[in-house]
C-alpha cells in the first residue's frame, strides 16, 4: 500500500469522488487556480474545470448558503472554509439551515453537504488560525461531525461524508496535514461515519481522543510501555453520532479513562464523553474520569512559549496517564 500524507488523502478523496459522481463539486476561497491555501484541492481545477472547482468571493456565509441551496436541489457540494476559525460568519447557515432542513420539512427536503475546515494549532497560527471549533456544533442536532486522525481515515471518511444524505462537518487538523503519513489503499474504500476505532490495545489506562492529540496519545503510550504501563487508545474519529458502544467497551478494558482534546476544557466534547461514561459505565470505573484539554483561555497566542504552553504534547499526556495508572 502506498504511504501518503493526511492532506494527500483529502485531495485523493475529492478527486475520486468527483470522478465517480458528476453532482460532486467543490467551492471555497482560493480552491481553484491556487489549489487551496493548504493545497488540499490541488489539481482539481485542471481535471474538472472552474465550474466544479469554484473560487468563491470572500464570503463564508455564502459558501455555506450557496452550498446548502445546491445540496437541497440535489447536488453534492463540498464546501471549504479556509480556516475553521472563519466558519463563524457561516454559523447561522449551518445551524439554522443545514442542520434543520430535513427535520423542518418533515423529510421532504435534505441537505447532502460536506463542509471541510482545517482546525487546530501548533503551526504559529495565533488566535485566529489555530482554533478548535467542534464544541460550537456538537450540541446542535442535525450535524454529523467527523474529525479523523490518519490518512486512511481521512480518505475513507471523506468519501463517506460526500456520499452521505445529510450535512457533515469534516474537520481536518492542519498540523496533521504534512506531519502525519500512513498507508492508504489504491482501490476504492470507505470508513463508516459514527464508528470509533481502537488504535492501540492496552490494559491499564484508556485514552479517548481524536485528531492530532490522538497521535500524541499513541506516542505517550509507546513511551509508557517501556515503563510498564499498558495504554489502550480509542480514536473517536466521529464525534457526532458518538460511538457510545466503542467508548463503553474501551472503558471496560481498563477501568481508568483519560479523555484528551485540543479544544478547551469547559464545554468541550470530552464533557459529553465523560457524562456518557458516568451514566452508563460507572461501575466499570476504578478511578475518576480525567480530562486533559486545551486551557480555558480565549485562544492560542502567537509567541512560541505561549503557543507551546497552550498545546498538548506526548509528555503532558504521559504525565496524566501515569497519574491515573498510579491511582
Amino acid at each position: 500500500m502506498p504511504v501518503i500524507s493526511y492532506i494527500d488523502a483529502v485531495t485523493q478523496a475529492l478527486m475520486e469522488e468527483m470522478k465517480r459522481d458528476p453532482r460532486v463539486f467543490v467551492l471555497g476561497e482560493d480552491v481553484g487556480v491556487r489549489g487551496g491555501v493548504f493545497r488540499a484541492t490541488v489539481g482539481l481545477i485542471e481535471e474538472f474545470g472552474e465550474d466544479r472547482v469554484l473560487d468563491t468571493p470572500l464570503t463564508e456565509s455564502a459558501i455555506a448558503g450557496v452550498a446548502i441551496g445546491a445540496a437541497a436541489y440535489g447536488m453534492r457540494p463540498v464546501a471549504e472554509m479556509q480556516f475553521a476559525d472563519f466558519i463563524m460568519p457561516a454559523v447561522n447557515q449551518i445551524v439554522s439551515e443545514a442542520a434543520k432542513i430535513r427535520y423542518r420539512s418533515n423529510g421532504t427536503w435534505s441537505c447532502p453537504l460536506v463542509i471541510r475546515a482545517p482546525y487546530g494549532g501548533g503551526v504559529h497560527g495565533a488566535l485566529y488560525h489555530s482554533q478548535s471549533v467542534e464544541k460550537i456544533f456538537t450540541g446542535v442536532p442535525g450535524l454529523k461531525i467527523v474529525m479523523p486522525s490518519t490518512p486512511y481515515d481521512v480518505k475513507g471518511l471523506l468519501k463517506s461524508a460526500i456520499r452521505d444524505e445529510d450535512p457533515v462537518l469534516f474537520f481536518e487538523h492542519k498540523r496533521c496535514y504534512r506531519l502525519i503519513k500512513g498507508e492508504v489503499p489504491v482501490e476504492d474504500y470507505t470508513v463508516p461515519i459514527g464508528k470509533a476505532e481502537v488504535k492501540r490495545e492496552g490494559t491499564d489506562v484508556t485514552v479517548i481522543s481524536y485528531g492530532l492529540t490522538l497521535h500524541f496519545a499513541l506516542q505517550a503510550a509507546e513511551q509508557l510501555a517501556k515503563e510498564g504501563i499498558s495504554v489502550h487508545v480509542l480514536d473517536l474519529r466521529t464525534l457526532i453520532p458518538l460511538d457510545k458502544e466503542a467508548v463503553l467497551e474501551a472503558v471496560a478494558k481498563t477501568g481508568k479513562v483519560l479523555i484528551v482534546h485540543e479544544d478547551n476544557l469547559t464545554g468541550g466534547f470530552g464533557g459529553e464523553v465523560a457524562a456518557v461514561i458516568a451514566e452508563e459505565a460507572f461501575f466499570e470505573l476504578d478511578a475518576p474520569i480525567k480530562r486533559l484539554c486545551g486551557p480555558d483561555v480565549p485562544a492560542m497566542p502567537y509567541s512560541p512559549p505561549l503557543e507551546k504552553e497552550f498545546m498538548l504534547n506526548p509528555e503532558k499526556i504521559a504525565k496524566a496517564i501515569r497519574e491515573l495508572a498510579e491511582f
Binding site: L54, G65, V66, G69, A70, G74, S96, K100, R104, S105
Partner: peptide, 19 residues
Amino acid sequence: TGSSPVTTQVLHAVGIAYA
C-alpha cells in the same frame, strides 16, 4: 423549505441557480 432567521433563503436561491 425556509426558516425564521431572515434572508438565509436568498443564498439558497443562488445555490439552486448555480446547480
